[in-house]
Amino acid sequence: MNRPELVCPAGTPSAMRTAVEAGADAVYCGFQNATNARNFPGLNFTVPELEKSVRHAHNGGTKVLLAVNTFPPAGKVDLWKEAVDTGAKLGVDAFIVADIGVADYIAKNYPDIRLHLSVQAAASTPEAIKFYCREFNIKRVVLPRILTVPEIKTMADEIPCEIETFIFGNHGLMVEGRCSLTNYITGLSTNMDGVCSPAAQIQYIKDDSGNLTTKLGEFTIDCFSCDENAGYPTICKGRYLTPAHDGAYYAFEEPISLNLSTLLPDLMAAGVTALKIEGRQRSRAYVKSVVTAYRKAVDNIMAGHNPEISDLLALTEGQKETQGAFKSKAWR
């Protein structure tokens, strides 16, 4: 069994330092603009910040993966090329890309820098992945969160590149890179602007009896009684009504988090090269706890011991967790 790389979120320079100190093998990050899929206010890096952070990470033996993983709309492509040029100049270890045009630009201009295919590219079959490998010399694919462990194993046998899978964090079932729900409601696009459920268009409205309604734009996403934990209003995590269902229900998915700690040995045996922790939008404390716990778990498994994953439930969304798609396909 190969030692898998632990790939950790770095939403800010301080989160990156924290991840490096907690034992991340690699960190992933983006610039403060639409070129990456977590374009949230207060997150991400300026050029000088990234320059300093890359130096610090490399000193600690940690690789830096730059996410340039949104889809530049026609007329705005230069912003993405600038992000790539800057990243190359600062010495990032790999680019994470989704758009064919961006991948082509990097493959032609920076053939010596590794290319990783983002989950946003939604490459869900060996054929799709082989296409990207053949065309752009992709070294690693980040698999969509919709495959089971046996499916990942089959995939590993059929594709010529490394596999990275999510092990912890947000649990989304909408195929990433193929969702324009946010744009339909807010006018900001997940694919083109890197925005999902923008905070500026969110409202929490409390009524007289203490119930809390959450809204995105003009639309109600959920309503919580006073004894419920109100979640952040994301369209695919809301409750809705339909004639076929009795009462309000989570039409798409429950607001729960992915936690694959108990499946780690299976994933490693399936041939997964890199384990990804989601959460560039999360706090430094989150990064510290999750990275530390998973560092220990991976090291224990490699040493032939029990993974001994500590309780991470408190850090999960809505304090509920799942093994998501990975365990079986009965959720589909």
């Binding site: 889809f71 530049p72 026609a74 007329g75 989704a98 758009d99 045009g101 961006v102 083109m192």
Partner: peptide
């Protein structure tokens, strides 16, 4: 996802 002239 064909969003731009380069991909096209």
């Amino acid at each position: 996802n064909v969003y731009n002239e380069d991909t096209m």
